[in-house]
Design a protein around this nucleic acid. Structure first.
Lengths: 252, 252
DNA sequence: ACCTGAACACCGTTCAAGT
DNA sequence: ACCTGAACACCGTTCAAGT
């Protein structure tokens, strides 16, 4: 109801300068990112897009990190959570959700980098957490382990996506990364059998496998590890229940 | 022998401007970082420190990412690899090495952030890889799994350290992070039992535990997971050896 | 060759002042 | 209150020109 303020006199081209609001700023930021890449989503460029000065944005957003987190939460709306509610092997479904999450970040590795530092805390992020916890519960993972494991699972996806960032968005990505990759590959090739026997034996095995294969392997490894690793604070003996009675569907 | 060039006439204060070299640049960068934080290790500031213009640095360093990677490799010299060569439980020793790695990065979270994108490939990094592989081998982890697991283990340490970065080095860190953390905590507190039952049930359990406890738990989880997760490409049936004959010391 | 001055095209954030 | 012009204090990288 308080939406259409302002006079009917519009400013030339733009479809009437919209009033500033946090949501408006974030959604303009998302659009700008889709159009020009994260590297161009700066306070100054964003302000320009909103036809104002950079200082105005600071009324709604604390800093650039918070802006990035808000953008990310918006993007997380595209994560496919449906596997959490369909039948089938819970591990496979869990990996599907996590892969979807990672794919979203892969499209903007720069955001993944930000996500490690400034976590989102919006609606979509909470939905994602809930879906993951629900799948872990279905798999019979004890609640305490699940609570800590979610972080690890998301961390793996986030970090893997972040690894593909280079510079901050614009085109130079591929070239720069090739340089870095070759550096590691070259270092491994030139390694001495005397000083680094195991490295020499494994050779390029360290860099083998496709991205998706390694990502999925990592998720499976984390899931298996979770099932096999009780928390260090697993309650003092006196307070521990007899046997943590496996939840329905334990180990399938 | 080619070291002391230049005339004896020194420039006022500085102990005679040293000739530029990649090593000199990197070690000056390390010093600058120790003195003023990673946020001040910029091409311009570094050039100033070396008494030259920023353009000169590009003769020796491709870009800022490569500079950061070189700095990191230098710092990795401080990682304690001795547990790889002492007796005792291999898992504990493995975790000790990984913890030492993470601690080095914790002192400069900004570098951890860089490390995800621009991996080091220098001497110290190779030494670290060799030590980790040697411990995994001692634990009877099949070579293929070990080759992939190393990345995951280091990724966990790197990402955990990177999470503590804020801004890019200078003081504002603590304050900024507190804001972010509170945001997640607040979001979790206000979650609805109807829409997010599991989140509501777990509550602050998700954020429980000390940093070191969670870090170590993560490492143990990864190690356990590695032992329980064969690689997807584990060789076609025809080419597979009868039974991967456990290496010496399998499962201790 | 190796080195660099100067320029190009930008940044985040703050604050005093306006409406 | 909400908004902003202008300033402060910086950036990475390139390139033509010097030695």
């Amino acid at each position: 109801m308080t939406a259409n303020t302002g006079s009917p006199r519009s400013r030339r081209e733009r479809p009437a300068k919209p009033a500033l609001s946090r949501d408006g700023i974030v959604s303009t930021a998302v659009g700008l990112m889709r159009a020009e890449g994260l590297g161009r989503v700066t306070m100054r460029r964003l302000a320009q897009e909103l036809d104002t000065g950079p200082a105005s944005l600071y009324v709604y957003v604390r800093n650039t990190a918070e802006l990035h987190a808000a953008i990310l939460d918006e993007l997380l709306g595209a994560v496919d959570l449906s596997p959490a509610r369909t039948p089938g092997d819970w591990r496979e479904r869990l990996v599907r959700v996590l892969t979807s999450y990672t794919e979203v970040l892969f499209e903007n590795p720069g955001l993944a980098q930000s996500a490690l530092v400034a976590r989102p805390s919006g609606q979509h992020y909470l939905d994602l957490l809930e879906a993951l916890l629900s799948l872990l519960d279905e798999g019979g993972v004890p609640a305490g382990q699940a609570a800590w494991a979610v972080d690890l699972l998301l961390q793996h996806g986030t970090a893997t996506a972040a690894e593909h960032a280079a510079g901050n968005g614009a085109g130079n990505g591929a070239t720069a990364r090739k340089g870095e990759w070759d550096a590691v590959a070259a270092a491994l090739r030139d390694v001495s059998e005397q000083t680094h026997p195991r490295l020499a034996a494994l050779g390029t095995e360290l860099l083998s496998g496709t991205g998706p294969d390694r990502l999925a392997w990592g998720f499976h490894l984390l899931i298996n590890g979770t099932l096999h690793t009780p928390r260090p604070d697993a309650a003092p003996a006196e307070d521990r229940r007899p046997a943590p009675a496996p939840t329905e569907g334990h180990r399938k």
